[in-house]
Design a protein around this nucleic acid. Structure first.
Length: 271
DNA sequence: ATGTCCACCTGCTGGC
DNA sequence: TGCCAGCAGGTGGACA
C-alpha cells in the first residue's frame, strides 16, 4: 500500500492522537512482524511522552522525550487504526495514551516492521543511511537524477523504485509520474536528457502532492488512521487501468516483470 | 557493481 | 459450493 503519500497521511492522522501524550501502555500481540519487535520496546515506550511525529521516505517516525524514536514501516499491507471499534486479528502492536486513545498497528501480510532508535542517531540508522533525497524537498533536482542515472542501463522505472535514488516512490507513483512526464518505463535511465528529467522531477512532485491532498490511494486494506478512505486512486491515469483508455485515447498497457506490474500508455510514453 | 528474480505472508478475486 | 492460480502498495538477499 503505502508509498510516501500514504505514510505521510498516516503520520498526519496519528499526530493529533499521539502528540504531547504520555504512553500509558504498549502491547505487542506477537513477537515479530518482518523482524522481531525490540525486546525492550514496552519498557522503553511506556511512560514516555510523544514529542512529535515525522516521516523519512516510507518510514514513519514517532519521537519521544526519552530520546528514542519509534520507527515504523508499513510494508505492503500495514496501517494504523485509531480507536478501533473492534479488535482485529492483525492488530499486532497497540499503543494507548494517557487520554485513553488507542493506535493499533495492523498488518495482515507482516512485511512491515517497527524499531526503536536513538533520536540523535537516526541519520546513521542503517536503513536510512543510503536513502536518497526527499522528493518534496529542494534536494531532488533533475541534475541529481541525471547524476544518479549516469551510465545506468536499467529501466528508469527500476531506478526510480530504488530508494537510494529518490526516497519514497513505489510502484503506483512511479507509473503515474512516468506517464505524466511522458517517459517510457523501460527507457534506460542513462539515456534520458536533462530537460526530460526536469519534466520527471515536476511530475514526481505533482503526483505526490496531489495524492497527499486526496488522502492517499486506497486499495484493499489501506485507509487513513481515522478510517477515511484515500481517494487518489480515482485520479490514476495508468496504474491499475490495463485495457482502459489513456487520456489520449490509446489503450493503457500492462507488463509483468519480476512479479511486479508496470502500467503505461504506449502512445504518450514513447521514448 | 549492476541488473534480475524470488521469497517473505495473507487475503481477495476470477475461472473452472 | 469448492479449489486453485494469480495478483497485490516493499524490501533485501541470491544469483549471473
Amino acid at each position: 500500500m503505502p508509498e510516501l503519500p500514504e505514510v505521510e497521511i498516516t503520520v498526519r492522522g496519528l499526530a493529533p492522537v499521539l502528540e504531547g501524550q504520555r504512553l500509558a501502555s504498549v502491547v505487542m500481540r506477537r513477537a515479530d512482524l518482518r523482524y522481531p519487535f525490540p525486546a525492550d520496546l514496552g519498557q522503553r515506550l511506556t511512560g514516555a511522552t510523544v514529542t512529535g511525529l515525522g516521516r523519512r521516505a516510507k518510514y514513519g517516525l514517532i519521537h519521544t522525550d526519552r530520546e528514542d524514536t519509534l520507527v515504523f514501516h508499513l510494508g505492503m499491507s500495514g496501517r494504523w487504526r485509531v480507536d478501533p471499534s473492534e479488535a482485529d486479528k492483525h492488530d499486532h502492536l497497540l499503543i494507548e495514551t494517557g487520554a485513553g486513545r488507542v493506535a493499533a498497528l495492523n498488518d495482515p501480510r507482516r512485511f512491515g516492521f517497527v524499531d526503536l532508535v536513538r533520536t540523535d542517531a537516526l541519520a546513521a540508522y542503517p536503513p536510512f543511511a543510503a536513502i536518497g533525497p526527499e522528493p518534496l524537498g529542494e534536494a531532488l533536482s533533475a541534475r541529481h537524477l541525471y547524476d544518479a542515472f549516469d551510465g545506468r542501463s536499467a529501466p528508469v522505472k527500476a531506478l526510480l523504485l530504488d530508494q537510494r535514488v529518490v526516497a519514497g516512490l513505489g510502484n503506483i507513483y512511479v507509473c503515474e509520474a512516468l506517464h505524466m512526464a511522458r517517459i517510457a518505463p523501460n527507457r534506460a535511465g542513462g539515456r534520458i536528457a536533462l530537460p526530460r528529467l526536469e519534466r520527471l522531477v515536476d511530475a514526481i512532485r505533482d503526483v505526490l502532492a496531489a495524492a497527499i491532498a486526496a488522502g492517499g490511494s486506497t486499495i484493499r486494506d489501506y485507509a487513513q488512521p481515522d478510517g477515511e478512505l484515500g481517494y487518489f486512486a480515482k485520479q490514476w491515469r495508468v496504474y491499475g487501468r490495463e485495457g482502459q483508455p489513456c487520456g489520449c485515447g490509446a489503450t493503457v498497457k500492462r507488463r509483468a516483470e519480476g512479479g511486479r506490474s508496470t502500467f503505461w500508455c504506449p502512445v504518450c510514453q514513447r521514448g
